[in-house]
Design a binder for these strands. Structure first.
Lengths: 271, 271
DNA sequence: AGCGATTCGTGCAAATATGTACAAAACAAT
DNA sequence: ATTGTTTTGTACATATTTGCACGAATCGCT
């Protein structure tokens, strides 16, 4: 087998598997570990992957693209992950959904790679990159100005794109939710986009970990009753859950107990 | 057996096999390794294949399993890199430029991270992700439908965004350039986008390595005179350069020693 | 914190591939 | 037939790849 062929197959595997174990590669490709190591070194040099002890992690369509995302997602990452896993069941095959950029929604996007017949609209370049290899998912992007603080698109192009579509479901992260005040966010442009997403979707699903409750932020998005389904973690105080449910909102609590989650980047050997 | 027939059979084999081993070709065609090497060298120059240690890899998109970013990014990467470095000087601080998704243009985007006061518009999510951390660069994205084969945005949203802007410079990769026929590309949607980019820009800069010359592809983009500046590598035949210059096109040759054509993906240890 | 098991980096040697000079062979045209 | 051109085979020096080996670094587990 040609060296090129071998490396091509490694690339190929990386498009379906985010992580590869060096030992597995030795067995599958029939070469020694030294050769695999050299292959991985070469592919790392080409920017295809990032090596890690025992194997490698894909660099395309992964969180390695933006460190800001990584640093952010470390915060409450266990809860975010549980929330994403819970929200995944709300997305059905054949639907058209909006995924609004936010770290929690990004986690959700990672779960959707294997879906068939799903249309995703998003204002996040990171989510686009995450989903670009999944053949079963049609991806549309609003485009617009890239906000340097949040890494989402906003602005005129994004707004007009949103004004022209109707969605089965919109999934968005919220940065602040308060019962009397409503939902708010730090960025005015982001608030504008969130309002339009709300308007375009039949079902509005919000993801918020427990730290977001009872807080207010600069730019007002809308009342909490704009939300149809709210997914949060078990750390949220019961009083919030109770009041929201009384207001007719479907509150889902993601079970985050005991699931000791390790950092995504270092678990390369899992199948 | 005629040399022409031998090379035809190699082409034929490449349409069913992505890679060919030189040793296999010797056996099948009944000639020595030296002859096969000369054949492969000739076919490489014609842009049919890319040589690699021990054989060759098909370059024709129809046979490539995924003629995507990753597959092609290592092909002619030395030339692409040199071209990108050369084109970098054409982008000036303070300008508004369009970067059209293509592997060579992506290389260029990587060089622009440190710029101050630069506005970049692009239809490539990969380029957005590449530039999103650079504080000095304002990034806009056309949005649109994500093409699963090329990973660029196209479609209505992309077209309308392009119809509303005027650019100092547009930088695009070309997949096929032929003197009488003009510029063409494999994808119809991509050709549409390219046309609009051409229209929106005051100065149109095309990047093309030597293998693109003298080739035609499915979808017509426009005559070669649409191009103001063409950046290529030193492997391009002099006749093309001469004719294009006579037509008033500013042809820049990226400095690379013509004889030494090492494959980047096989040299991982240097530097 | 310590320890055994893996894994990593790398020098070395064998095998293989590459580029090229040169001669032989095939071909084309008078 | 002969002459000039192109192509192919041979030979050989150089370059690359790969497996093996061994010390160093890292990981997982107690």
């Amino acid at each position: 087998m040609l060296a090129e062929e071998r490396r091509f197959r490694i690339r190929e595997m990386l498009s379906s598997q985010r992580t590869l174990a060096a030992s597995d590669l030795c067995a599958v490709l029939g070469v020694t570990a030294a050769t695999i190591r050299r292959d991985l070194a070469a592919l790392e040099h080409d920017g295809v992957l990032v090596r890690s002890h025992g194997g490698a992690v894909s660099r395309m369509s992964s969180t390695n693209f933006q460190p800001s995302y990584q640093t952010l997602s470390h915060v409450h990452s266990t809860e975010k992950h549980a929330i994403a896993r819970e929200a995944e069941h709300l997305v059905l095959d054949g639907e058209t959904v909006f995924l609004e950029g936010s770290t929690t929604v990004y986690e959700l996007a990672c779960c959707l790679n294997q879906r068939k017949r799903l249309t995703v609209v998003t204002n996040s370049p990171t989510i686009v990159c995450q989903l670009q290899r999944s053949t079963g998912v049609t991806v549309l992007c609003t485009g617009g100005d890239l906000q340097k603080d949040t890494f989402y698109f906003s602005g005129e192009w994004a707004q007009r794109a949103l004004s022209e579509i109707r969605l089965d479901k919109a999934i968005l992260g919220v940065s602040a939710i308060d019962i009397p005040y409503g939902v708010s966010t730090a960025n005015h442009a982001e608030a504008q986009i969130k309002k339009m997403i709300m308007k375009a979707a039949k079902t509005r699903i919000a993801l918020a970990d427990h730290s977001k409750f009872g807080t207010q932020s600069f730019a007002y998005v809308g009342p909490v009753t704009d939300i149809d389904v709210l997914v949060t973690d078990s750390g949220t105080e019961a009083k919030y859950v109770k009041v929201l449910r009384e207001m007719g909102i479907d509150v889902l609590i993601a079970g985050a107990t005991g699931t000791k989650r390790k950092e995504q980047n270092t678990t390369y050997s899992n199948k």
